[in-house]
């Protein structure tokens, strides 16, 4: 079997991710996240380009109002830099590094990329409205038994099953 098709046992991977989640909470009091780092990137970029706008606008001002705060140096940014390094390390070990578009054979590259961009756009909006994504809100929320995490779980995965039929041509 091709080495690049070999994956870690999912229960072991999940158990170990759970241990890292415990470590994140025990050492830093933080959950594992992803969309929060993207938001920080957007906030920092906007602050660099248009500080006067950012310090007045409703969405931005809670992050950039105090002048000494550097919004980029956050726990989540460092965590996501680690995520990038860890993913590259694993992909290098298993022989999965390399430029490619992953898609079912019957889908054109163009369709896959348009779908990926649209899905990203929706996930970006949804994660802000929902106060976090699958990791930062659902998985971290579930870890501390927050009701919010379980509502998010039902909305994202339950919602996914409700609509999967209508988008099946993208995948099967």
């Amino acid at each position: 079997m091709d080495r690049s098709k070999k994956y870690m046992n999912p229960y072991l991977a999940g158990f170990l991710i759970g241990l890292f989640m415990i470590a994140a909470y025990f050492f830093s009091g933080e959950g594992l996240g992803a969309s929060g780092a993207l938001k920080t990137t957007v906030v920092a970029a906007t602050d660099v380009v248009a500080h006067d706008y950012a310090k007045e606008a409703q969405f931005f001002k809670r992050y950039v109002s105090s002048p000494d705060q550097v919004p980029i140096k956050t726990w989540l940014i460092f965590e996501v830099l680690g995520v990038i390094a860890g993913a590259v390390l694993s992909a290098a070990i298993f022989g999965r590094l390399g430029s490619e578009i992953i898609k079912p054979p019957h889908i054109s590259n163009k369709t896959r990329l348009i779908a990926a961009a649209s899905g990203g756009l929706l996930f970006g909006i949804g994660s802000q409205l929902g106060r976090g994504c699958t990791s930062g809100m659902v998985m971290s929320g579930m870890s501390v038994l927050s009701l919010s995490g379980f509502i998010g779980l039902i909305a994202i995965f339950g919602g996914g099953y409700l609509i999967a039929y209508f988008f099946r041509k993208l995948w099967i």
């Binding site: 992803a34 969309s35 990926a116 649209s118 970006g124 990791s135 919602g159 409700l162």
Partner: peptide
């Protein structure tokens, strides 16, 4: 909204 993002885009942010 994230469910649509997941099904259409095939990823979540992480």
């Amino acid at each position: 909204i994230m469910a649509f993002g997941f099904i259409i885009g095939g990823f979540c942010p992480g």
